[in-house]
């Protein structure tokens, strides 16, 4: 039996993700563009709109920034997880699977890589939003927001791996984009407060794990949250553990070719 946790293998899986990430400069620019436009156009466009649930003294852009960070984390980590599918498509998955490395280590390396690349993008968006005048409550808030960023990323990388392990080819990719990513994003309260919403919508929002992520980020960064921060943290932690578990389990069972 190969050792379950093979640090060298986890490291090299991570290293590969990082190399691929930093080499795809145009892709980084592409993935940062949408959140940037959200901040610049939506943030400015809704500047004068007052949502009923929004506390006084908070501008829409302050409110929006954590939501947009949640958005990029969601996009980045889910696509990182789903990249298993691209490895399958280009044959590299076979190379990985035939090595004497436990599947658990392979999954851990992948998650670590996905979390790292998502985190980098999340921090970039945070810096951009600060540069655009979004107020934050201080350095402690920023540091604690990193905890939420890691949990959000790890959970969705796990979900991505789970989805990719069940899919045989890349044709379902746009389906996932439209039926998984967009609802998760739009229902998370990234763009609007949860206060005063119709019951059906708020129910869906409560089911959406990203809701707690965005709420946690908002609590850390601008000091306003719908739930207690500890509640956000615990729910997100559970989501993260469950998703990583499911992702690892399904990947373990995946067959090559």
């Amino acid at each position: 039996m190969a050792q379950l946790i093979n640090l060298e293998a986890i490291y090299v899986m991570w290293l590969r993700e990082m190399k691929r990430f930093f080499r795809a400069k145009s892709r980084i620019a592409g993935s940062l563009a949408m959140p940037f436009f959200f901040l610049a156009f939506l943030g400015t466009g809704f500047m004068n709109v007052r949502f009923s649930g929004m506390p006084p003294g908070v501008n829409y852009i302050d409110f929006l920034a954590p939501g947009v960070i949640g958005m990029i984390l969601l996009f980045a980590s889910l696509t990182a997880g789903i990249s298993v599918l691209w490895d399958r498509e280009f044959g590299f998955l076979k190379e990985i699977m035939v090595t004497p490395v436990s599947r658990v280590s392979i999954v851990l390396g992948r998650i670590l890589g996905g979390v790292s690349t998502a985190l980098i993008q999340g921090i970039l968006i945070l810096l951009i939003s600060i540069g655009m005048g979004s107020k934050i409550v201080g350095i402690f808030g920023v540091l604690s927001s990193l905890v939420f960023m890691v949990l959000i990323s790890a959970g969705f990388v796990g979900l991505g791996i789970a989805i990719a392990s069940r899919m045989k080819d890349i044709h379902g990719f746009s389906l996932i984009m439209n039926f998984v990513i967009m609802p998760i994003f739009l229902l998370s309260g990234a763009l609007f407060p949860l206060e005063g919403l119709p019951t059906w919508l708020i129910t869906l929002a409560y089911i959406d794990p990203l809701t707690y992520g965005v709420d946690g980020l908002r609590g850390c960064l601008i000091g306003i949250s719908h739930f207690n921060l500890l509640v956000d943290f615990l729910i997100l932690l559970c989501f993260c553990i469950v998703m990583v578990g499911i992702g690892a389990y399904l990947f373990e069972k995946t067959e090559v070719d």
Binding site: R16, K19, R20, R23, A24, F90, G91, F92, L93, K94, E95, V98
Partner: peptide
Amino acid sequence: CIGIIFQDPSLDNRL
């Protein structure tokens, strides 16, 4: 103990 060279490509093109 084994090495295998697959029928279809299995390299990482971005490396």
